[in-house]
C-alpha cells in the first residue's frame, strides 16, 4: 500500500446524497418510532412497515437502470442503512438489498430477479457457507421463503413454501433455523470461483451496510444518553457536567464519527476501486462492531439503573448492537484476515 498516494479526502455529501439521507431519515423517524420497534418484538419484523419501505423503491434503488433500478451506489446504501439503524427499524432491508444485488451480479433469470426485487416476501442470505445439509441459523430466514447460500462450489437460491422456524434471539432479529434439505426448489445461480467471489462480494456489502446500521444505532444511543445527561442532576449539577459522565460520552462521539467516515470511505472504494484497498470493508465492519458494543454499553450505563430497564430505549440499542454485529461471526476474525492480508502483501 502506498501511504503517500495523492488522493482526495472529501467526505462531503452531494445534494442527491443529502436528499437520500433526508428522505429515509424522515421515513424511519415517522414510520418507525420505538413503539413500532417494540410492537414488532420478538420477531423483529413489521410487514406493513416493510411494504411501505419497498414502496419507496429501496429494494431496487441500487440495481442498474437496465434492470429497473436507479443505479444507486454503495455510498447511498450505507446512508440508508445508517438511518435504518438510527431507528432500530424492524425490516430486513440489509439482507434483502444485498441478496437482490447479488442476483443481479450473477445474472440471475429476469423473472427470479424481478420477483426478488418486488420484495414481498423478502429474500435472505446465509452469511456462512453451508456445511453439508445441516440446518443453520440464518438471519431473516424466519420471514423469507427464498434463501441464497453458498453450498460447496455453488451459489444456490433455495425456495421453500414457508419461512424457517423463528428462533428468539438477543437482538430481536428474524433469525430462522433454516434447513436446506427442506427446500422445495433449488436454483443454481453460479458455480466455481465465480460463485465464491460473488458470495464474498455480497458478504462484503452486508458487512458494510450492517456497519452503517450499527453506527446509526450507536448515534441514537449516544443522543439519548446526552439528553439524559443534560437534564438529570446529582449533587445540584447536571450529570453531563461531570467528567466521569462527559468523557465516556465524548469517547462514543469520537468512535462514531471516525467509524462513519471509515464506512463511507470503504463504501466509496468498494464501489469505484474495489481492488485498491479490499481490507477496508473488514476494517469498517470490525471497527463499527466494537464502537457499537462500547457505545451502546456506555450510553445505557450513563442512564444508570434506568438504562438497564426494558422501558428505556437504551435497552433496544444495547441488545441490537450485539444482536446485529455477531450475525456474521466473530468480528475478530475480520481482524485476523486484515493482518494476514497485510503480512502476505509484505512477504
Amino acid at each position: 500500500m502506498d501511504r503517500w498516494e495523492l488522493r482526495r479526502q472529501d467526505y462531503s455529501l452531494d445534494s442527491d446524497q443529502e436528499d437520500v439521507r433526508e428522505a429515509f431519515s424522515e421515513f424511519f423517524a415517522k414510520e418507525s418510532p420505538s413503539s413500532v420497534v417494540r410492537a414488532a418484538e420478538p420477531l423483529g419484523y413489521d410487514a406493513a412497515l416493510w411494504e411501505k419501505l419497498v414502496g419507496m423503491g429501496v429494494t431496487t434503488m441500487s440495481l442498474p437502470a437496465a434492470l429497473g433500478g436507479d443505479d444507486a451506489t454503495l455510498v447511498e446504501l450505507v446512508l440508508v442503512a445508517e438511518e435504518l439503524g438510527r431507528n432500530a427499524s424492524p425490516v430486513p432491508l440489509i439482507s434483502h438489498v444485498v441478496s437482490v444485488r447479488l442476483l443481479a451480479a450473477v445474472g440471475a433469470d429476469r423473472a427470479v430477479l424481478d420477483a426478488a426485487a418486488a420484495g414481498l416476501p423478502p429474500v435472505a442470505l446465509a452469511l456462512a457457507p453451508l456445511t453439508g445439509t445441516s440446518p443453520a441459523l440464518v438471519p431473516d430466514a424466519a420471514i423469507a421463503n427464498d434463501v441464497i447460500a453458498l453450498s460447496g462450489e455453488e451459489l444456490v437460491l433455495f425456495r421453500s413454501a414457508e419461512p424457517a422456524p423463528f428462533i428468539a434471539n438477543h437482538g430481536s432479529t428474524p433469525l430462522g433455523r433454516w434447513d436446506p434439505a427442506a427446500a422445495s426448489g433449488r436454483i443454481v445461480l453460479a458455480s466455481g470461483p465465480a460463485a465464491v467471489s460473488a458470495f464474498e462480494r455480497a458478504l462484503g456489502d452486508w458487512k458494510l451496510l450492517t456497519a452503517a446500521a450499527l453506527i446509526g444505532l450507536t448515534q441514537i444511543a449516544l443522543d439519548t444518553a446526552v439528553e439524559f445527561a443534560k437534564t438529570r442532576e446529582t449533587m445540584g449539577v447536571p450529570i453531563g457536567s461531570l467528567q466521569g459522565v462527559a468523557f465516556p460520552l465524548a469517547d462514543v462521539a469520537i468512535g462514531v464519527t471516525g467509524a462513519r467516515n471509515l464506512i463511507w470511505r470503504a463504501a466509496w472504494m468498494s464501489e469505484y476501486e474495489p481492488q485498491a484497498r479490499p481490507e477496508l470493508i473488514a476494517m469498517a465492519y470490525a471497527n463499527a462492531a466494537r464502537v457499537a458494543t462500547r457505545g451502546t454499553t456506555t450510553s445505557a450505563h450513563m442512564q444508570g439503573g434506568l438504562g438497564f430497564t426494558i422501558e428505556a430505549d437504551a435497552s433496544l440499542y444495547f441488545l441490537r448492537a450485539k444482536g446485529w454485529s455477531v450475525l456474521a461471526g466473530d468480528p475478530n476474525l475480520d481482524l485476523v484476515g486484515i493482518g494476514a492480508g497485510l503480512v502476505v502483501a509484505a512477504g
Partner: peptide, 12 residues
C-alpha cells in the same frame, strides 16, 4: 489479529 487491530485503529 494484533496487526489487524492496529491497522484498523490507524485507519479509523
Amino acid at each position: 489479529q494484533r496487526i489487524g487491530r492496529v491497522a484498523t485503529d490507524l485507519e479509523a
